[in-house]
């Protein structure tokens, strides 16, 4: 039996909690065949049960607060290798990553937990406004501004584009106090259902988050990269709720990457916890 600790990184609203809820449903409901299979139901599942209840009702998760952060434990085995795995996922608050970037510090627990991490998942959400426009780009869209705007805002860490913040969060892991080694790394692009056309997750990344894409390509000695597009809710919980409620819940799921297109969102986890 191996124990895998898998930190889940991502700024607020990146899809971390929705993924955990959907994974818990997938493993406990047994509606479809998945790569990871629930082994036994032991321990405290209060948090998982709370988030999965909302997920089954197709409701949006509430934002995870820093005070609410918990680690959930799932006993499973790999259907292909028969290996027994104990998965520990912290449901971290996106705010704690914002704070990490702006305060240039992290908790001692975060450092200690990374020492035992098998690999990590980083979430970015495909369903949100793009990075800040430059003024020149805006002018290309709407024409030149006529009057100077007096509402100038000071710089703050929260104005930094997500891709730059995420790059910096990953750079932290490359130096002390973190152990310098290669880690398996899944970048999960959540809300994949909103992505148009036949783009692969890597193409999406290259196009939408070019700085992060370049960084990951060039730091494979630190991060062994797999990109997945994941739809953990299946669609928009507000506008598409009726359609989602009509489906078998596990069939709402979608996991796309390296030749995979399936409902089995345990695949990235199986890869992370594998040898």
């Amino acid at each position: 039996m191996t124990e895998s600790y898998i930190p889940i990184l991502g700024l607020p609203m990146s899809g971390k909690t929705t993924f955990l809820a959907a994974l818990w449903h997938l493993l406990t409901a047994g509606e479809i065949e998945s790569r990871l299979v629930l082994d036994k139901l032991v321990g405290n599942h209060e948090h998982l049960n709370r988030i999965v209840a909302a997920w089954r009702r197709c409701e949006e998760m509430s934002r995870t607060s820093i005070a609410e952060e918990t680690t959930v434990r799932i006993h499973a085995h790999d259907r292909e290798t028969d290996k027994k795995i104990v998965l520990d996922f912290p449901d971290l608050s996106g705010e704690s990553f914002e704070l990490q970037f702006s305060s240039r510090s992290c908790t001692k627990d975060y450092v200690a937990d990374f020492a035992k991490a098998a690999g990590l998942i980083l979430f970015v959400n495909a369903d949100r406004s793009t990075d800040p426009l430059s003024i020149i780009e805006l002018q290309e869209l709407v024409g030149p501004a006529d009057a100077p705007n007096e509402l100038a805002r000071d710089w703050s860490a929260n104005l930094v584009p997500e891709q730059a913040r995420v790059v910096d969060l990953l750079q932290f892991l490359q130096e002390p106090p973190f152990e310098r080694r290669r880690r398996k790394f899944v970048i999960a692009i959540s809300a994949w259902d909103v992505v148009q056309g036949n783009r692969t997750p890597e193409q999406w990344l290259e196009h939408e988050m070019p700085l992060l894409h370049q960084f990951l390509k060039n730091n494979q000695h630190s991060f062994e990269l797999m990109a997945f597009g994941i739809s953990a809710q299946g669609g928009n919980a507000k506008s598409e709720r009726e359609r989602l409620l009509a489906q078998v819940p596990s069939e709402r799921l979608r996991c796309v990457g390296r030749g995979i297109d399936s409902s089995d969102i345990s695949l990235p986890i199986a890869w992370l916890s594998g040898d």
Binding site: P132, S134, I135, L138, A145, L151, A152, R153, L159
Partner: peptide, 13 residues
Amino acid sequence: SHHSRVESGYSTP
């Protein structure tokens, strides 16, 4: 880079 971005509220970079 802040002052060249729209969020800064400036109308010219």
